[in-house]
Design a binder for these strands. Structure first.
Lengths: 342, 342
DNA sequence: GTTAGCACTCCTAGCCAGCGAGTGCTAAAT
DNA sequence: ATTTAGCACTCGCTGGCTAGGAGTGCTAAC
């Protein structure tokens, strides 16, 4: 375990490096107000900290830079609570005041605000589909062969899908089918839909229509669960502001990664609920081994339904970002819950 | 006007620069098979071409680089038809073979293929909403205060919007309203909807319901035209592969511009139909004065309904990109027309 | 245990010379 | 009158060299 003084010094170094992006020398630390030791003492401690793996030296005659292990200790033990300024709080309040809630819009708006507040890249994953319950199904024929199937959830989310109509299906039969669906499947969670469809509807349908097979075919097409979640990325170019990413080769891989929507989910990294920090080397993907990601989840009525994440350099302002994220997810959860649980 | 030999040389220089990204010297040109003159002769011609504004010299003892004027002449007069290789043609055919057509998907798929084929950034603007006719309207109540309004067009596109319900509106009244709408407004182009609403429906509605004002309020909310067009960007990071954009400062502005969805429309630059090339300085936006954009439109039944654009360095392979775009828009138009005009 | 002092390391900026690609001009060749 | 060979000149780029400075590690004194 690190001594109190070692912790004090490690904290000072990480702090300094986060704000300057320059290797930190012993004299810089000894000049700080909260440190009462000479540079020589600091040097000895720094040497020890390096040996323990908390610091690294770019080259012999340079200052020290925190290692992944150093950041990890900083995040786990040293971070001090950060107070948001008035301006930032106002922006967050505005977000939560958005009474006109619409899943897609809130996701984008949230990502926008997050990237503004933090100056890092924001990734927001919308409320997950399998928590949604069916409100209403519509099937709108376009011509003889095609129709649009529309599924509305109790949260107001709308999914739609183009489907092929089997030959010889009339408008009245479709209408009948839709009525049956709405009658029987209302309030069924989306992920249970297909299962319930076969359980409850098929018997009834056999009685009502001769074209049982064709109908089932329509339904099967209509209710295929959307694979792509609603994930939204904002502020990808923020990384270009960081001095350690002045090199095109270094950012190229990162930006290419962020271009792939399906990779964004991997970045958020599964349904961990609560706040998670992944620092530098701790990340799976090579492209972002020089970055840190802070993720957290927000919930509806106690159950986590979505995630938000902030991607920045390892030299990220962890304290501030964590505070912002906590404020945000708290507000978001409160808002979601009050809106849909009544 | 330029002499034949001047044109030959300008063509050779642009050609060479496009492929090497290095200033072109007189000896390089004189060595080309299609040129039968010594380097000295080339030097004299180059000097003339520079004086006329077609070439520029980064510094005294460097080769020449085409100016915007030079590229312009090249594009307008010198470009040679480019043949696509088998592989590329197959990819394009695959796109057109997509029978399962869905506006949103085709836009994304098209952008993806374009960026793959050209290795530049692709921007695709989906079929414009005002060409779409109303097929069906639905209003699905979520709770006492809110509902989702859904508009389906004859092309199978689905727009949805969360609306607030006035107090005291019952489900039966909404149903009545929806029936009336579908009966009266089917096949009306979306952009005429509100106008026709007031013309045709209001009289009838006064008769049928006492809550005329409230109903109108619902409709007004439901039919607000979506401001954001379906625009899709792919391959933004391709620019990072270009040697002239190895500098973070140079790409930062470009990437930040591409992050803003509303700016993408400006890039495509209005409803010019037919193929347009905007080269370097000719671009309005400062951020892309070092880039060129080639745009063109595709059509449904003769009327242009969408656009595609390719963004690359001024040193772009104009011939190849133009060929790809022509193939694409031709196929896309044919596909759209055959699908919806029957 | 702490700190002042000092030799040492190593990066960085600046300077300079040499190289080479390329030009422009002139004079000879066609 | 063109075209071309020849040559001097320009200028960016590379590599080697040096001086400066920030920072370290060690030792010895406090």
């Amino acid at each position: 375990m690190l001594s109190d003084r070692q912790q004090l010094i490690l904290n000072a170094i990480v702090d300094n490096y986060i704000h300057t992006a320059e290797p930190v020398g012993s004299r810089t630390i000894s000049k700080r107000e909260d440190i009462g030791f000479s540079s020589a003492t600091i040097r000895n401690e720094m040497s020890d900290l390096e040996e323990l793996g908390y610091l690294e030296q770019p080259h012999t005659s340079a200052g020290r830079v925190p290692s992944t292990k150093g950041y990890r200790f900083y995040v786990d033990n040293l971070i001090q609570p950060h107070l948001l300024n008035e301006e930032d709080l106002v922006k967050l309040k505005q977000l939560f005041a958005e009474q006109i809630f619409h899943a897609e819009q809130v996701v984008e708006y949230t990502a926008q605000i997050l990237t503004q507040l933090t100056n890092y890249t924001a990734i927001v994953l919308g409320p997950e589909i399998f928590e949604h319950k069916l409100r209403n199904v519509q099937i709108v024929p376009l011509n003889e062969a095609q129709a649009v199937a529309i599924v509305v959830t109790h949260t107001g989310r709308v999914e739609n899908k183009l489907i092929d109509l089997p030959e010889g299906i009339g408008a009245s039969e479709i209408e009948q089918l839709v009525n049956l669906l709405n009658h029987r499947l209302a309030d069924v969670p989306l992920w249970q839909l297909r299962q319930r469809l076969y359980q409850e509807i098929s018997g009834e349908m056999k009685r009502h229509t001769e074209q049982y097979e064709e109908m089932l075919q329509i339904l099967d097409q209509s209710l295929i669960q959307e694979e792509t979640e609603r994930v939204c990325l904002r502020g990808a170019t923020k990384i270009l502001n960081q001095p350690e990413f002045r090199d095109v080769d270094k950012v190229k891989d990162i930006l290419e990664l962020l271009e792939q929507n399906d990779q964004l989910l991997h970045l958020l990294g599964g349904q961990a609920n609560g706040l998670t920090v992944r620092i530098g080397q701790e990340n799976q993907l090579d492209a972002i081994k020089q970055c840190s990601i802070i993720t957290t989840s927000y919930s509806l009525g106690g159950k986590p339904v979505g995630m938000v994440g902030i991607l920045g350099p390892t030299r990220m302002e962890y304290g501030r970002v964590i505070t912002v994220l906590n404020h945000l997810t708290e507000g978001l959860s409160r808002m979601l819950t009050s809106q849909f649980e009544k």
